[in-house]
């Protein structure tokens, strides 16, 4: 895979009329994801006209604004529904949906599991920073138990959602996870998800220092990045580890990769059957 340089990415794929540097906090993982996503798009050989970027609300919702492709910034949690409409009306487009963890699991949790069940040919990038970063650090469904947030001053009392496990159970064709620290792996996984036929989910673990790290006594986002580096373990090694060793860490890489009947094919078949019956005058 040829890796395009930063210069190529900035000058060919980012919108020059948008204000740079972008809105995210210093050291935010979303900037790293933006670079990785754009490099993966460039490496996949797609042109700008063949890609549609959809996002919901939140810090991650700002991402498509910076990329010079057809993009839509939709309502909270409903990015996947808009993407479904785009894909059904224009199946030739590669539709990438960028969501945060609050967007994907809290408000849009229902849409995520049903999009995975339906197995429409979409790429869902779920950025998991374990908090509602934009609104001031309230707990989200992926906040770990015991963590302090604005709305859980004495420690969070609910267990967390495992986004990858939920999507795998719901029926996604490809489920992968990476962190923004493991940026090469992230780029490879995004490329694989772009080329995969079927619903692909890439969970991206990202640090939120401003609204999560500071409340949990982490010294800086660099410390959070180093934590991600230690917590993320390649899935091959993860499978050989015991239950106790796994505590506090998570597997990285392709967790599920399977070929399932796609919604688009079934939909076309139904359309053909209906047209045939209509032409025969049966309906």
């Amino acid at each position: 895979m040829t890796v395009p340089s930063t210069q190529t990415v900035v000058y060919e794929w980012l919108r020059h009329d948008k204000k740079f540097p972008h809105v995210w906090c210093p050291g935010c993982g979303l900037g790293i994801l933006l670079g990785a996503l754009v490099r993966a798009l460039a490496a996949s050989g797609l042109t700008k006209d063949q890609v549609a970027l959809v996002s919901g609300i939140g810090c991650a919702g700002r991402l498509p604004v910076y990329v010079d492709v057809g993009s839509i910034h939709t309502t909270h949690g409903r990015a996947l529904t808009f993407a479904t409409g785009i894909k059904l009306s224009k199946p030739e487009l590669t539709v990438v949906v960028v969501m945060g963890d609050g967007d994907a699991m809290a408000i849009g949790g229902n849409h995520l599991i049903h999009a995975a069940r339906r197995n429409l040919d979409l790429v869902a990038v779920v950025v998991n920073n374990r908090t509602f970063g934009m609104t001031g650090g309230q707990f989200s469904p992926t906040t770990p138990m015991g963590a302090k947030t604005t709305t859980a001053l004495y420690g969070h009392i609910e267990p967390e959602f495992d986004i990858a496990a939920v999507c795998a159970t719901a029926g996604a064709a490809l489920v992968a996870r990476s962190t923004v620290y493991h940026v090469d792996r992230l780029e490879r996984l995004l490329l694989q998800a772009l080329q995969k036929k079927g619903f692909s989910v890439v969970e991206v673990m990202s640090p939120c220092y401003t609204n999560f790290g500071r409340q949990n006594l982490m010294a800086s986002h660099v410390v959070m990045m180093k934590q991600l580096k230690e917590q993320g373990i390649p899935v091959e090694r993860w499978q050989k580890m015991s239950e106790i060793e796994r505590r506090g860490s998570f597997p990285l890489g392709v967790l599920v990769d399977r070929d399932l009947p796609g919604y688009l094919d079934s939909y076309r078949e139904v359309c053909k059957t209906a047209a045939k019956l209509r032409s025969e005058g049966k309906i």
Binding site: L14, G31, I32, G35, V180
Partner: peptide, 20 residues
Amino acid sequence: HMCEKLCPDFAVTVGEETPS
């Protein structure tokens, strides 16, 4: 290229100079 890829703001470039 670690600095280049881990820079969230595209402010680092490694390698040959380009016209831009």
